[in-house]
């Protein structure tokens, strides 16, 4: 029991740990991470399976850790949203946004509502906000995870925040 209470992502794992011996401990962490971000059980299960199977395919002598698996899961999540964005782009062109400035926004976000708003954003915006804010990555780290440049990521974040605010305020008024 006490094992589960610790922040296992922060612990260095024992050197004899293998993916299989780590499985019971890592599975709820990986699934919990993905479920809280994609909000869809079927997608979370698919991405969890992809995460572990991708980890199993890695040939390394370095023992796996929960933190490393979360990193793999994050990539799977970004890949999923990238695929989703591509699908949607086939249906309708993403509206171009000329403005690149951020208006200050003085608001205290309602967490439940905010997470609901996230699910309604364009996938690439959802991905950027998830990495930057839910996961707390820096802009350069988010850029790496997204496979974009830092400047492009900054611009993406501006557009993502604007869409978020638009949906958040619009649905609040409704």
């Amino acid at each position: 029991m006490s094992d589960d209470d610790r922040d296992v992502t922060a612990l260095p794992d024992r050197p004899d740990v293998t993916l299989l011996t780590l499985y019971d401990r890592a599975l709820p962490q990986v699934y919990g991470y993905l479920m809280a971000r994609c909000g869809d059980r079927a997608v979370a299960e698919d991405l969890t399976a992809e995460t572990f199977l991708a980890a199993a395919a890695v040939r390394t002598n370095v023992p796996p850790t929960v933190g490393w698996l979360i990193g793999v899961a994050r990539h799977k999540l970004v890949d999923h949203w990238r695929w989703q964005a591509r699908q949607e782009r086939l249906l309708h062109a993403v509206e171009g946004s000329s403005s690149s400035s951020d208006d200050p926004w003085d608001v205290e976000l309602d967490r439940l509502h905010a997470h609901d708003v996230l699910t309604r954003l364009a996938p690439q915006h959802r991905a950027a906000l998830t990495l930057r804010y839910l996961d707390g990555l820096s802009v350069p780290e988010s850029a790496t995870a997204l496979g974009r440049g830092v400047a492009a990521t900054e611009a993406l974040l501006v557009r993502a925040r604007r869409e978020f605010r638009h949906v958040y305020e619009g649905s609040n008024d409704a």
Partner: peptide, 14 residues
């Protein structure tokens, strides 16, 4: 305000 979105991992058994 977006800092409020920070979400530490909460383990969840599938």
């Amino acid at each position: 305000p977006f800092d409020a979105l920070r979400s530490p991992i909460i383990p969840l058994a599938p």
